[in-house]
Amino acid sequence: MTTLTDRYVWAAVRTVPEPQRSGLEPEIRELIEESVRARIDAGDPVPAAESRALTELGDPERLAAAYVDRPLTLIGPRYYLDWWRLLRTVALIVVPISTAAVLVAQLLVSNDLGGAIAGAVSTALGVTVHLAFWITLVFVIIERTGTPGPGAAWSPDALPDVPDLSRRSRLPDLIASLVFLVLLAGVLLWQQFVPGVRDAAGGAVPVLDPKLWSFWIPWFLGLLAAEAVFAVVVYLRGWSWSLAVMNLGLNLAFAVPAVVLWIDGRLLNPGFPAAVGWDQGAPEAGGVIGAGIVATVLVIVTWDVVDGFLNARRASGAPVRRPALHNR
């Protein structure tokens, strides 16, 4: 018996469970010997015949897997779709919630925006990796131990609704956007002209720093007007990739100055905390309010941008081959 054959046989049988090895070894040995004999009969030189025959038989582990019906896929077609759906569903629920929770909690504790974002990003990555690993591990075990048969039963009840891309379906979004924008603009103006808080002398105390009227409050009001125009355009033309990018730009134009102003301490009227009775010596109170506002802005902005891209994808994924979508 030559070494090459012995090594091949060992490489094959060591990958199958112990009890099956004694049955498998003579079969693989016979297979190799007969393949070598056939090559020698066909005129191959003796030393090369063994090597060539083994090359032809291929990876010993693959051969052994064929003998014992071991799957050579991590998750086969039977469970792939169940795995993919579960992973997607759980990730879409758990990752945003845990990320937002970490972001808000860190902002409340530290007031350090960069650190909070870094913590949220590392949480998102860690949670995603953990979810993917553990869910996949469970399915790999099911794949190898599960009873044969079809995976989860499917019925037509599970069919998704065809997305309604008609203009009429976008009307509620338009109304909600316009109402929200008008309310926001109203709040910006109201806090200046009809303040609910007055100082000791009876004068009005706005929430936002009045110095912002030189540029930033008009900027935000202008952005709100632009957002309103944008909402009408989306209503008329439907979502597209370019509109989603424009949405991203509008949101950045709003969020970046707001966050920067808050970090620089230029957002709130310096007289406001005193006027509402917050202890001047306890900056945490103002900090907590500010952090809450900034976290809320970030969550809303992120959601709005993501929603824009999701809508764009949904709209672009509605090809001509689906006549149900032609009723625009």
Binding site: E56, R62, A66
Partner: peptide
């Protein structure tokens, strides 16, 4: 048919 297909097939 390849030998590495036939032998496992016979066993199955």
């Amino acid at each position: 048919v390849d030998a590495n297909t036939l032998y496992p097939l016979l066993r199955r």
